[in-house]
Design a protein around this nucleic acid. Structure first.
Lengths: 178, 178
DNA sequence: TAGTTTGTACAGTTTTTTCTGTATGTACTG
DNA sequence: CAGTACATACAGAAAAAACTGTACAAACTA
């Protein structure tokens, strides 16, 4: 039988996922790969991916690597199978929190370190005799950096909230409601 | 006097901000522009920006536009000033939540709609007589889509948490602690 | 009104990213 | 051991994005 509707229904969702994977800073191609793997019953080989997406095997290799680095896909092992097998991680809640915790944390760390270093430097400079205006400038910059520091502390705690999974106390997972 | 240390301290932070603005899907150039505006005492004109960053005025124009679209910068008006003036929005907590709420919400909406449409389609197909395997495939896809839907509902509530500012009940702003 | 100043649309250039095919190293098979 | 299958490094091609200078429209000035 030739009912394309099942295929179409799946394809619609894959396409939508692909388009919206930009929140993970991923290209639509890699997004489509993710979507395809998500719906596949069994773990996929690179060759299956390339047939499915009509792209080069090299692209599949780098695409899968990208998704693994993002903690979105696992390499799985199966007895008697020579090819590498890959499947999408099944816990989307974890995938989501992993991604943002890692990226936010990195940004926070770097910016906070820069602020701290610069604040220390400015404090030192303030003790010496500077021109009136330079002193005021240093003062103003110190204020800005302190504000930034406060914000980064807050954001760090937000990341803690997700990383510690306490977020699930605040917002219940849907599938646990039944 | 020629003490470069104040300038260096500022530059270090600008550079760090610039590097980490990728979490907002913004290029380092636009990030540097944002950093420069952040430290400027007064609202800046496009010409001041171009002098500061040594880039074309066109780039400043499009860069500022980008930042305005992201709700990170405001155009401000000042009596007797012909040039347009721009300044960084002062509430970083708001900037942060705005950005992620807008982007996440968009992704959620689109994916949820796609899922709902496809689920309806598959339900309809299930009633008709299909081959055994096609029925199983539809069934499996329905499960996946239901899972996705549940996840999107959860994420929607997370966005609500930020958008409603209830997040600040869960995680206090640092500057309110004193 | 004519003459400036200012912001941006647009076209072209440079840079970066994505994608492909070939080549190579590794790990299996017999 | 040779022979095969596989993943990926690498180089080059294609596509996309960032950036610039010019041109022009709108808003202001006198």
């Amino acid at each position: 039988m030739q009912d394309k509707r099942v295929e179409n229904a799946r394809e619609r969702v894959i396409e939508s996922i692909s388009k919206n994977m930009d929140i993970y800073s991923v290209t639509p191609s890699v997004g489509r790969l993710y979507g395809a793997m998500f719906f596949e019953k069994d773990p996929m080989t690179l060759d299956e991916m390339k047939d499915k997406l009509q792209m080069s095997k090299t692209s599949m290799s780098t695409g899968v690597r990208t998704l693994i680095d993002l903690n979105m896909v696992d390499k799985v092992w199966r007895k008697g199978e020579r090819k590498d097998l890959y499947e999408v991680k099944s816990d989307w809640y974890q995938t989501f929190t992993d991604f943002f915790c890692i990226h936010w944390r990195k940004g926070i760390e770097m910016n906070r370190d820069a602020c701290k270093e610069s604040i220390a430097e400015l404090m030192k400079v303030m003790d010496e005799d500077l021109s009136k205006e330079e002193k005021m400038m240093a003062e103003a910059d110190l204020d800005k950096m302190s504000y930034a520091l406060g914000y980064y502390e807050w954001l760090n705690k937000v990341v803690d909230l997700f990383e510690s999974r306490r977020i699930f106390d605040v917002i219940d997972k849907e599938d646990e409601l039944k």
